[in-house]
Design a protein around this nucleic acid. Structure first.
Length: 179
DNA sequence: GCGACAG
DNA sequence: ATCTTGTCGC
């Protein structure tokens, strides 16, 4: 359990969350190195970011592990907008695994919108964090999707909320910020 | 009031 | 993030 003190500011998510994530990886490296994952999926963006360096980039560099950014909403940077044209492109995604590139005004592909399964309305926004290609990042993310959100991220979400629900409801428990 | 808004 | 409303599938 950790207590977050840094406020959430869009564009600065890494400064709020990355110290705790790095600590978890280092604890695992020390105590159960055989369980060290070959790649991390992060609830947030990689290079799809105002400064081209989101949470998934920070975590990848600090842990030296391959890292994928998986966001549930489009971060509107470098001219990318969740506008009518974008929504039309989403509508044209037909089957799970379908994608379209997220091309910024600078001409760089910052990530891919991915329909994560056949009946999902909203896409995932996949971007490179560290030591992985966008193509592999998208394929791996898709293969982790039993539901819309990839299972590693989904389970982290479900289990952390369950832990908070258990913890917060009992006497003498510190309140916890949640990110 | 309006736009923007990773979590 | 959190909250609300509505729909669908089990």
């Amino acid at each position: 359990m950790v207590s977050l003190t840094t406020p959430y500011v869009s564009g600065f998510l890494a400064f709020r969350e990355v110290p705790f994530l790095v600590e978890l990886v280092q604890q695992l490296r020390k105590k159960e190195p055989s369980l060290m994952p070959q790649v991390l999926l992060v609830d947030g963006n990689g290079v799809l970011h105002h400064q081209g360096f989101g949470l998934a980039c920070h975590l990848g560099v600090l842990t030296e592990l391959p890292c994928i950014g998986v966001a549930k909403k489009l971060l509107q940077v470098d001219g990318l907008e969740n506008n009518a044209l974008h929504k039309e492109k989403i509508r044209l995604l037909l089957a799970g695994g379908d994608t379209f590139p997220l091309m910024g005004s600078s001409g760089t592909v910052l990530g891919m919108a991915l329909k994560s399964h056949d009946h999902s309305t909203k896409p995932l926004y996949v971007s490179v964090g560290h030591k992985i290609s966008l193509e592999v990042a998208v394929r791996l993310t898709h293969r982790c999707c039993r539901f819309r959100v990839p299972e590693p991220v989904r389970q982290a979400d479900i289990r952390s909320r369950e832990h908070i629900r258990r913890t917060l409801g009992r006497p003498g428990s510190p309140a916890a910020g949640q990110g």
